[in-house]
């Protein structure tokens, strides 16, 4: 769907992107991750042709991207705003028409999406009368109004309450099922785990990783396993022989515990289960994959300014 190849861009002496390439497949949700100032927004602006790259090419559906392709893209910038004195409906019509919708189409789509997001009664309200969350909803609808083939969202969840975050997530998942492609730039790692198929991480103007979310997690797993059981902690520790090492434990109460352990020597998951059966009542046991948060922290570790990453 979108092929970004060797994009470089510098602003005067500062390099914002250095030979960055990413590949986004059709019908997937692609997470674009990275600490603040890594170059994500610049890359997004280049894709939207707002900023021109110094070198590199972008292909859209296999062809070099042109001005025309912009009509097939929906873009929600991180720093977003609306014309405050316009009404909600007039604004949606304006942005819809800018994206090439006919007058008739724009009306139909507005009816559908306003209904879907339950904002029909705001139609005639001026943007300045809306709360921040309401305005964000309007912005999101304006972005997807023309049902773009490629949707680029920069921090779409910021400013929304949990109910609306869920609503947006569901909409994105439905759009993916509909064959649309979504690029999601966010610091919200939980949502990356939940809805992203693939992700790329940019740090210091360079792409440091790209791949399936589960693969990225797999690659950084530390051989940790968790066991949740009911019984005596002493019996549990006694049952383990030298093949396992307890890393930490959580006491859940009612004689229930969660213990994380690491394998030693050649021990396997099956070995672990075998030694425990009969000693404690096992409720669950699983291999611990690092969260995307951990993956993120691991990848950007050399940099110190990671405090903004959630």
């Amino acid at each position: 769907m979108l092929d970004v190849k060797d994009i470089s861009k510098s602003f005067y002496r500062k390099e914002a992107l250095k030979d960055v390439s990413i590949h986004v497949n059709k019908g997937e949700i692609f997470g674009l991750l990275g600490p603040n100032g890594a170059g994500k927004t610049t890359l997004i602006r280049i894709i939207n042709r707002i900023v021109e790259q110094d070198s590199g090419v972008i292909r859209f559906n296999g062809d070099l991207m042109t001005e025309k392709n912009l009509l097939e893209i929906g873009y929600l910038p991180e720093e977003r705003g609306l014309y405050r004195s316009m009404t909600v409906e007039a604004h949606a019509i304006f942005l819809g028409r800018l994206k090439g919708l006919s007058k008739h189409d724009v009306k139909t789509k507005i009816d559908y999406w306003f209904d879907r997001f339950g904002i029909n009664e705001w139609r005639k309200k001026r943007i300045e009368e809306l709360s921040k969350g309401m305005a964000q909803k309007v912005q999101f609808i304006c972005t997807i109004l023309h049902e773009p083939k490629l949707l680029i969202l920069d921090e779409p969840f910021s400013g929304f309450d949990p109910v609306n975050v869920e609503l947006i997530k569901q909409t994105l998942i439905e759009m993916r099922a509909d064959g649309r492609t979504i690029i999601l730039s966010t610091h919200n790692m939980k949502s990356v785990e939940e809805i992203c198929d693939r992700a790329a991480l940019i740090n210091n103007a360079v792409k440091v990783a790209e791949g399936r979310v589960s693969t990225l997690q797999e690659e950084r797993k530390m051989g940790l396993y968790s066991v949740r059981f009911r019984g005596s902690m002493i019996a549990f520790v006694n049952a383990l022989w030298t093949g396992f090492e307890v890393v930490d434990k959580d006491i859940l109460g009612d004689d229930r515990f969660v213990v994380r352990l690491r394998m030693r020597n050649e021990s396997s998951f099956e070995d672990l289960l075998k030694v425990l059966i009969g000693q404690v009542q096992i409720e669950a046991a699983w291999e611990v994959l690092p969260s995307m948060q951990d993956v993120f922290m691991d990848l950007v570790k050399p940099r110190e300014e990671v405090s903004d990453a959630e």
Binding site: I73, G81, L82, Y83, L98
Partner: peptide, 17 residues
């Protein structure tokens, strides 16, 4: 300057030059 400070400009610029 209003377009600039309300940041609508980036949305519009994604459609027109």
């Amino acid at each position: 300057s209003k377009e600039k400070s309300s940041r609508i400009v980036e949305v519009v610029l994604a459609s027109v030059k």
